[in-house]
Design a protein around this nucleic acid. Structure first.
Lengths: 142, 142
DNA sequence: AGAAAATATTTCTTGCGCGAAATATTTTCA
DNA sequence: TGAAAATATTTCGCGCAAGAAATATTTTCT
């Protein structure tokens, strides 16, 4: 009974660290959720809906993050010509610039380093355990 | 490179689920961080500082959560007589009532169930991996 | 065509969560 | 003793994150 409760508090600690790393490595200019969204749209424009599903955040949350990214002029909102309900989120030139400088370096720096610390087996087993927990918790929420 | 990045997104999913469960099982009356704080103080009063360290949240965050718990009259703030910088957080009668009804049932319902789904070995290994990742990330943040 | 249903997004309200600055009090020490 | 340092907490500003309600538009269906 004490054991798995420990596990869950480790998860929380980890998430906070993860977010902190993002901020630091991205020069405090882009947050973790902002980064995830930028990664989604930097190749081609996507709708808010696409993005929400891809990164598993609610529409309203994504909409709010886009507000801030738009304010920083890293992305822009474009209404679809044919279906005016749809809003396309598109990278700006400023993002293209930024991307070259920071985002790619970052991606490798954090995850490749982590892959060296963990064995393939460890990653695999942990992934499996996490999936089990997720499935269990999902059943609990309905 | 793709592998451990997957792992980190699983952590995020898990945390969200975890928080959702708390809300649901606690009848939408107490949130997860609120629950952690209530658990800290339900035996004996603690200071904001004690609580912050125990659950690893900043003073300001804990102070805010206490505000809301106080509003719901589940806890109260008591100034220390001898050192007036210190604020003791104390359970109210309302919390005692609430505790009997909900909190204990909850504690067993979620974690004991999880312990049945996971093997001891799985928990142990996962805990070890998480610690490795945490140590790695901590070094990255400095 | 026109009402009703469906779809896409935004707005609003609530609750974390942090760091920095502000406030209050106590301790230290010159 | 009285200024300075240390300690404990709160306040402020910012950015998530969610659900519910509002808005805008398109599709469906009679």
């Amino acid at each position: 009974m004490k054991t798995s409760s420990n596990l869950l508090s480790l998860f929380m600690k980890l998430n906070k660290l993860h977010a902190a790393i993002f901020r630091k490595l991205l020069d405090n200019r882009v947050t973790m959720p902002q980064y995830f969204i930028l990664k989604q749209i930097h190749e081609e424009p996507k709708t808010i809906g696409d993005i929400s599903k891809a990164i598993d955040l609610s529409y309203s949350t994504v909409s709010g993050i886009i507000d801030r990214l738009e304010r920083e002029q890293l992305v822009e909102r474009i209404r679809d010509r044919h279906d005016r309900r749809i809003v396309w989120i598109r990278a700006t030139e400023k993002l293209d610039h930024y991307k070259q400088k920071t985002m790619e370096r970052f991606q490798t720096e954090i995850y490749e380093g982590l892959d060296q610390v963990l064995s393939g087996e460890q990653i695999e087993n942990t992934e499996k355990t996490l999936q089990t927990i997720i499935t269990y918790l999902e059943k609990k929420v309905e």
